[in-house]
């Protein structure tokens, strides 16, 4: 199943104020189906904030982020189209990798790969039934990324996806992202290092 070719993410004139400080000043962005966006900029410039506002965790002071699906009679809200992988991996240490992914699937709806296959894809087939608490930082990260494959959502918001990943895992992640783009998905990644995929749209945030 591939995503509709006519969906896009529109961020228009977004201002974000946190703790009395303007973090984002008039950020605009358009991401079409099959496109990768890379948000770059120095530490503390508001990359994570931008992703969290788009995911709907934080309210913007003005402007908006919207999700459009041409041809859809009843477009779903943006939050229901988003996969978010942030600094916190959203995994329960006491649950096994499979249970965590199964829960992620039930929470998101729209199944794509079974948890077992998704873990296979991130080369973690050997730890399927191990509690996530026993895994290393990089392995936890991979389980969190496997969640992207378990439930089918078109827009992926990845906050520093390369953190804690080794060289092989980075290549694997690039493959997963490229697959998703090929299926008509959208990826917006906040990152210091480019994912190295051709045709990426760069959004550089400047310090205020």
């Amino acid at each position: 199943m591939s995503h509709t070719q006519f969906c896009h993410l529109l961020v228009a004139d977004l201002w974000v104020v946190r703790g009395g400080r303007t973090v984002l000043r008039s950020v605009s962005l358009q991401l079409d189906a099959g496109q990768l966006g890379e948000v770059t900029g120095s530490n503390g410039v508001g990359k994570s904030t931008l992703l969290r506002v788009i995911a709907g965790f934080l309210p913007p002071a003005s402007g908006y982020a919207s999700w459009n699906e041409l041809g859809a009679k009843d477009p779903a809200p943006l939050a229901e189209r988003v996969h978010y992988v942030g600094h916190l991996d959203g995994l329960k240490s006491a649950l096994t990798a499979r249970e965590n992914l199964q829960f992620g699937l039930t929470l998101s709806g729209r199944a794509r790969l079974p948890p077992r296959e998704a873990l296979d894809r991130v080369e973690l087939a050997h730890v399927v039934d191990l509690p996530v608490g026993y895994l290393s930082a990089g392995q936890r990260r991979r389980v969190a990324l496997a969640r992207l494959l378990v439930a089918d959502r078109p827009l992926w918001l990845l906050d520093e996806p390369l953190t804690a990943l080794d060289r092989a895992a980075r290549v694997m992640l690039m493959g997963i992202v490229a697959d998703h783009l090929g299926r008509g998905g959208l990826v917006l990644a906040a990152t210091h290092e480019s994912l190295g995929l051709p045709g990426a749209l760069e959004l550089r945030l400047e310090a205020q």
Binding site: A55, Y84, S93, L107, G109
Partner: peptide
């Protein structure tokens, strides 16, 4: 909240 599960719940249709 501490492990980020709450974010995932916010993204759920429920």
């Amino acid at each position: 909240h501490e492990d980020g599960s709450l974010d995932q719940m916010l993204l759920s249709p429920a």
